[in-house]
């Protein structure tokens, strides 16, 4: 279960304070699939970043599985992200120096999975997003939608407990959406957080 209590995020740019989140509280049950809707600039990405332990809220509390995750040290958060989260970023965030397949398998290798097994799993996930024949291409050689599908495969490769997807289908066309959504188990509108095992 994920809980957020009165989470606030204020970005300060010089003297200007930009409130991005103004006291958000929510609960996401294990196995629940939650979509977050809102106009652009309303703070959807910011909320996912806070829940995904990528940045600290200015105020408020977040627990995952009852644990006060905000109290974690930097390296504990890093390990938590690797072992429990999958993240599909709004701008795909692929590693430019790695091929599609290498991008997908990196989180698996980092978890200690043997390169050979990781590559097999990676190919499987790339196949599901219809990109297995592009596995050796660099992100720069892929279209926006293709990059997004690689990002989806990467988010899934470690079979994460919690999947954060920030507008995961914004660049997917109508034919790819069904195959991708089958995996992300979500509708392709706006941001979503799916908690499968917490």
């Amino acid at each position: 279960m994920i809980t957020a209590r009165n989470v606030k995020k204020i970005y300060t740019m010089g003297r200007v304070e930009v409130p991005a989140l103004n006291g958000v509280s929510l609960e996401i049950e294990t196995g629940e699939f939650v979509g977050i809707m809102g106009s652009s600039g309303s703070g959807k990405s910011t909320l996912l970043h806070m829940l995904g332990l990528l940045d600290d809220p200015t105020e408020g509390a977040i627990t995952i599985g009852g644990e006060d995750v905000l109290a974690f040290s930097d390296s504990e958060k890093t390990r938590y992200r690797l072992q429990r989260f999958g993240f599909i970023f709004q701008d795909y965030a692929l590693v430019p120096e790695l091929s599609a397949l290498e991008n997908v398998i990196l989180p698996a290798i980092a978890r200690g999975i043997h390169l050979h097994d990781a590559a097999a799993a990676g190919r499987d996930y790339l196949d599901r997003v219809g990109l297995v024949e592009r596995q050796d291409h660099l992100p720069a050689e892929l279209s926006g939608g293709e990059q997004q599908r690689v990002a989806i495969a990467r988010a899934l490769v470690n079979n994460p407990d919690i999947l954060f997807a920030d507008e995961p289908c914004a660049n997917l066309d109508s034919t790819t959406v069904p195959t991708s959504t089958a995996r992300t188990r979500g509708r392709c509108s706006n941001s979503s957080a799916g908690s499968t095992r917490s």
Partner: peptide
Amino acid sequence: ILKAIGIK
């Protein structure tokens, strides 16, 4: 990106 996906 590397840090975000959990690389130390």
